[in-house]
């Protein structure tokens, strides 16, 4: 596993795909729509941030269950650092969403509570903040790893419920929620998908790259104190 953290090919792929996202995302023809105008391009930049958060947390959850199965501290380190990067992506998602919503939905101050999906994402993020608080409050390494691994399973399920289930049951401005048509209705000839899916992959790989550095730093910290992972 450590060897994969050092390989270069997937980092190069992240570079290529991210450059493609940001150049093609700015330059390709997009559907002309009222209200959205050019901000429809934010589909390439704002939405993948959230997708990446969900994906990184999913991988984190997988490593948490791997820890519970095998009891190796390295798995717990991977799970923690992935969650850390995911929360950063979540915060970026809030900031970009606030800016976008300000100009298209016209909601300046009450944006957090105006939309079920935003509130759901906020609660989901708070659940993961609690994950780090929980980790910080248990000094024993094995106990911390086991408790937080179990917690992260509950946290992920709650996150999915808050972001994907509840907004569909109630009212939301986000496409595909609360009776709104999904985004495919804005993108009738599917050209936007050509940038959107690579964008998700590019963001995800970049997130993994940053996480890999945090993981290596953490392992170095342990090895400095003669604890072999």
């Amino acid at each position: 596993m450590l060897r994969q953290l050092k390989t270069r090919w997937w980092k190069a792929l992240a570079v290529v795909l991210l450059l493609y996202t940001f150049t093609a995302g700015m330059l390709i023809d997009v559907p002309a729509r009222f209200v959205l105008h050019e901000t429809i391009r934010n589909l390439f930049f704002h939405v993948p941030v959230w997708f990446t958060m969900i994906l990184l947390l999913l991988v984190s959850l997988i490593y948490s269950t791997l820890y519970l199965r095998h009891g190796k501290l390295a798995y717990d380190i991977v799970a923690e650092q992935l969650a850390k990067v995911a929360v950063v992506f979540g915060v970026l998602g809030f900031l970009t969403g606030a800016l976008w919503g300000n100009y298209t939905w016209g909601d300046t101050f009450s944006w957090l509570f105006a939309d079920t999906k935003i509130l759901g994402a906020f609660i989901g993020l708070l659940i993961y903040v609690a994950y780090f608080i929980l980790r910080g409050s248990v000094p024993d390494e094995e106990k911390r790893a086991r408790i937080s691994s179990v917690y992260s399973i509950f946290a992920y399920i709650l996150l999915i419920v808050f972001i994907f289930v509840i907004p569909r049951l109630t009212d939301s401005l986000h496409p595909g929620n609360g009776g709104n048509p999904a985004f495919s209705t804005y993108d009738l000839d599917n050209t936007m998908r050509l940038v959107f899916y690579p964008a998700v992959f590019a963001y995800f790989l970049t997130g993994c790259w940053i996480a890999s550095q945090l993981i290596r730093l953490r392992i170095l910290h342990y090895r400095k104190h003669n604890i072999n992972i």
């Binding site: 997009v30 729509r33 009222f34 105008h37």
Partner: peptide, 11 residues
């Protein structure tokens, strides 16, 4: 890049 202005909304 081949630009075509087709819709009414201002782009």
């Amino acid at each position: 890049l081949a630009q075509e202005a087709s819709g009414q909304p201002e782009m």
